[in-house]
Design a protein around this nucleic acid. Structure first.
Length: 269
DNA sequence: CTGGTAACCTGGCCGC
DNA sequence: TGCGGCCAGGTTACCA
């Protein structure tokens, strides 16, 4: 599930149910999910601590304890958080469980085991080390910087939009939404985009992600003129009713409208 | 530098 | 009901 809007939702969720609460126990249910340190060390580091702050960068969630260190959570393709008070509500695929002294527990759920958790003293250092680009909705991330990152770059627009080293937070689904709204074919080469189109990609990215965050990533509640509610096999374009097509780009399925989204410059509406 | 591919994992769904 | 095959909203090592 998680692209940037979902992780924004998880961050709020984390704050609501974990911030300011003392950790009674932390249990790693599947050691493969932990990266960079032993599962036992992570458990020990968190037990008895209290969460004091959160931070989000792209698809990463960080949560700081009063010990100073930050818990890292990356959700992969299917990860999510689930808070419960009654053990009867414990979720399936619970990989990491934090129980609070005052009752209740927060589960890091991850069916496919893609994604990971860890610990760092410095989220900024981790972001830099991974070479992540600016977080997509960061207010300081403006068009000037976006243009600097994209102009002069070769290759197709869609893989670039999904490249976390350029911009952190956009994944396969939201890239499709952004390119549909800007009427740009996913295989369009960056070098062939006009300045106006590039600006439009940036503005649309911000607008789409803001809208998605507001609606907690719930695609069903998106405006009907949006692409994602229609993004499925044999569906039709919300703008022109043409049947949608798919193409594999960078190993992922891209949905697009062959009539609204053209590959050649000057053919876009 | 850029992109294609496969691999990492596991579950859900479709068709036979 | 069972099984094979395919797909899945991410990342990353490796190759061309």
């Amino acid at each position: 599930m998680p692209e940037m809007p979902e992780v924004a939702g998880y961050t709020k969720y984390f704050e609501k149910c974990a911030l300011g609460r003392k950790i009674a126990s932390a249990r790693v249910r599947d050691a493969r999910i932990v990266r960079g340190l032993a599962a036992g060390e992570l458990e020990k580091e968190l037990t008895g601590r209290t969460f004091v702050a959160t931070r989000q960068h792209g698809k990463y969630l960080f949560a700081q304890t009063d010990g100073g260190k930050w818990l890292i959570e990356h959700f992969g393709m299917n990860g999510r958080l689930w808070y419960f008070e009654d053990y009867g509500e414990a979720p399936k695929f619970d990989r990491f469980l934090i129980s609070f002294e005052s009752g209740g527990a927060l589960s890091y759920v991850n069916p496919r085991m893609l994604g990971w958790i860890g610990l760092t003293e410095d989220p900024g250092g981790l972001i830099e080390g991974k070479g992540l680009g600016p977080s997509a909705l960061d207010p300081l991330f403006d068009y000037g910087e976006f243009k600097r990152i994209f102009s002069g770059r070769k290759g197709e627009i869609k893989p670039a939009l999904m490249n976390q080293k350029l911009v952190a937070g956009v994944g396969n689904l939201y890239a499709d939404e952004i390119l549909f709204q800007t009427r740009i074919h996913p295989e369009m080469h960056i070098a062939r985009l006009s300045e106006k189109q590039l600006k439009s990609v940036f503005d649309t990215m911000k607008e789409v992600l803001r809208t998605a965050v507001e609606r907690n990533g719930d695609i069903g509640s998106f405006p009907q003129e949006y692409f994602l509610p229609h993004r499925r096999k044999s569906a039709t374009c919300p703008a022109c009713e043409n049947e949608l097509e798919t193409v594999k780009i960078a190993g992922r399925t891209s949905y697009f409208c062959p009539r609204c989204q053209k590959k050649e410059p000057g053919q876009n509406r």
